[in-house]
């Protein structure tokens, strides 16, 4: 089942009246349970594509269907609500709220969703268990390592039970061990709970773990490979 379907997506930035074509007619579909990585050199359009998929930026042209909803037709406020309920975000710099504890950070989006306290606490406990940080639930983010913070960010992204998670360079600020650990956790969540992850990355470790690699250059998809197909070919 397609949870994301984009057709002919174009993004033109009008910088000082000189148009910059960030995306040039991209067609892609993502299915439930994918563990996909969008790769490409800097300035290729990875982040722009991720922002459009996440409803953080508008396409200049084309159609963006998320879970059957045309994102380009939604108003700003409706898009915000849509993001809250359907999309999880993991950022390169973790972006946890420093004044809240680990537990409060994870509960935050559920509070925005208006989920009852009991349900929030239950879900948070499950997620803390999944990321292996149950014993740190009352710690502030500054007391955690970079890897632990990013695991909390993953748990926060999952808290709202989104349709998919967009992770923008999630391992860029992590050491090898932490990156491996984070990818293992995300891989496990993908396998066991069928959660869709879409990464934008330069990191070979992420590419190695990904089941599908989409390469973008100059705003165009130049390859879209599912690893199983390569193995089958070999």
């Amino acid at each position: 089942m397609n949870i994301i379907e984009i057709k002919g997506v174009t993004k033109i930035y009008d910088k000082n009246t000189i148009p910059v074509h960030a995306l040039n007619g991209i067609d892609l579909t993502f299915q439930e349970g994918e563990f996909a990585s969008i790769v490409g050199p800097s300035g290729s359009g990875k982040t722009t594509l991720l922002n459009i998929l996440g409803g953080l930026d508008d396409a200049t042209d084309g159609v963006v269907l998320i879970d059957g909803v045309d994102l380009t037709a939604l108003s700003g406020a409706k898009k915000t609500t849509f993001r809250k309920n359907k999309i999880g975000f993991v950022f390169q710099s973790f972006n946890l709220i420093p004044v809240l504890t680990v537990q409060e950070n994870i509960e935050f989006i559920m509070q925005l969703q208006g989920i009852a306290r009991e349900d929030r606490e239950k879900r948070t406990a499950e997620l803390l268990e999944a990321i292996g940080l149950s014993d740190r639930k009352n710690s502030r983010p500054n007391k955690l390592s970079g890897g632990q913070q990013q695991r909390v960010a993953v748990a926060r992204a999952l808290a709202s039970k989104p349709k998919f998670i967009l992770a923008d360079e999630p391992t860029a600020n992590l050491d090898s061990k932490s990156a491996e650990n984070l990818l293992d956790i995300m891989g496990k969540l993908n396998r066991e709970e069928n959660i869709t992850f879409i990464f934008s990355t330069h990191d070979l470790r992420v590419m190695n773990k990904a089941k599908r690699i989409i390469t973008i250059e100059d705003g165009k998809v130049i390859s879209d490979v599912v690893k199983e197909e390569i193995h089958n070919l070999i």
Binding site: F91, I97, L112
Partner: peptide, 16 residues
């Protein structure tokens, strides 16, 4: 800026 951006990204409305 980054934190407020994150709050908006994850679904916190502008009014909030």
């Amino acid at each position: 800026v980054r934190e407020i951006g994150m709050l908006m990204a994850v679904g916190m409305s502008k009014i909030k």
